[in-house]
């Protein structure tokens, strides 16, 4: 199987149809990232499309010395930031995420998962942008820390610090929600129990 870099070299040489293969490889991760970042599926699809189209249009500037994934996530990071700046604060728009269907799951599983997703979207929206983006690149895009560092123009250690601090804040908030939900309803699964709190 050809590597991303090999595919891009062929695309640069004129076999533009091979760009489809790169889209197939990277689109799911890109969508996870954009979905979390924008909390709106249409906007996320648009952002990913925009990033991929831009990568294709600028294909001659790609160089195999850097990873295609780093490049396309760097573009997407910028696109998502621009989308967020254009919009009003997210408010409860994260709820849109809760309705994404999950294939093969029971209705209850879907409900629980969508509630977790909504909770996570809300918690991420409360974080400083750099920490939230670092967490998205790590957990939704699955990038290694050196690629996160490149995409965010930071050091590797800086990227790890952002992820760790973001996780610490998220954990603290999640624990508080846990406690509150437990106090109110004595539910044990409280990210989900939180949703049933009046």
């Amino acid at each position: 199987m050809l590597s991303d870099a090999q595919l891009m070299e062929l695309v640069q040489a004129g076999q533009t149809g091979l760009f489809d293969e790169l889209i197939i490889r990277h689109r799911p991760g890109l969508l996870r990232f954009a979905g979390s970042s924008l909390a709106d599926r249409d906007a996320a699809e648009d952002a990913v499309q925009e990033a991929l189209l831009a990568a294709f249009a600028a294909r001659r500037t790609y160089n195999p010395r850097f990873a295609f994934s780093t490049w396309v996530y760097t573009i997407l990071l910028n696109v998502c930031r621009r989308h967020r700046r254009r919009r009003q604060p997210m408010g409860d728009s994260g709820g849109d995420l809760a309705h994404w269907p999950a294939g093969g799951e029971s209705p209850l599983d879907q409900l629980l998962r969508s509630e977790t997703r909504e909770l996570l979207a809300e918690l991420l929206a409360e974080l400083p942008d750099v920490e939230a983006d670092a967490l998205r690149l790590r957990f939704f895009a699955g990038l290694p820390f050196d690629e996160i560092a490149l995409a965010m123009n930071s050091s590797v250690t800086g990227a790890k610090v952002r992820v760790r601090r973001g996780l610490e804040r998220l954990a603290a908030r999640a624990a508080r929600i846990h406690t509150t939900a437990g106090d109110c309803h004595d539910h044990s699964l409280s990210p989900h129990a939180r949703r049933s709190t009046p």
């Binding site: 648009d46 925009e50 189209l53 831009a54 573009i75 294939g103």
Partner: peptide, 29 residues
């Protein structure tokens, strides 16, 4: 993560995003 069900409307590359792509490539290089 589940599959997305959204609809993308973009059909051509936005010039400012292409610029971002070019600048990113230059920075990464």
């Amino acid at each position: 993560e589940p599959e997305m069900g959204g609809v993308a409307t973009a059909r051509i590359a936005a010039p400012d995003t292409v610029r971002v792509a070019e600048q990113s490539a230059s920075r990464l290089l």
